[in-house]
Amino acid sequence: MTAVTIPPFERFYEAHRDEVLGFLRKRLGSNAAEDAFQETFLRALRGYGRLEHGLQLRAWVFTIASRVAIDELRRARPAGEPPEPATHDTRPAYAEIEHLAGNLPPTERAAVVLRYAYDLPYDDIAAALDSSPEAARQAASAGVRRLRLEELP
């Protein structure tokens, strides 16, 4: 597979900003979405220099946006509510699952990470992958099947 060149950040930002904002509005509402938007692209900037290729940048930024949205939803929970048990974050960290899914083809890997690490609905994964919800579902299950096969002794 030939390496896909990573564009200058300006190109990446212009290509994805509108969709990312739309996604965050759907998850968080208009007001919270604006802060989350800024946070998403600041996090993307922090990681941008460490990217190794330009594949699936769209899925990558949607992954960051979902992480930011999850953080925001947790933060916005009313103060009176008892804190969740320490084990609440059983969702595998992106780094872990990315490693686990590292050998999958890019689309399957993105679908698996977005579905099982970030719990995104297939509509959102489809948006991230620029495909249909059905194709996103198939990519995620194909990825999981492949992972199971690889795990066999």
Binding site: F9, R17, D18, L21, R25, E34, Q38, F41, G49
Partner: peptide
């Protein structure tokens, strides 16, 4: 969904203020 000029300007300013740009 189009990003408003204000939101866009905020992000661009924050990116520079936080020293994240080459």
């Amino acid at each position: 969904m189009t990003v408003s000029h204000t939101l866009d300007a905020h992000f661009r300013a924050a990116a520079s203020a936080e020293g994240l740009l080459d």
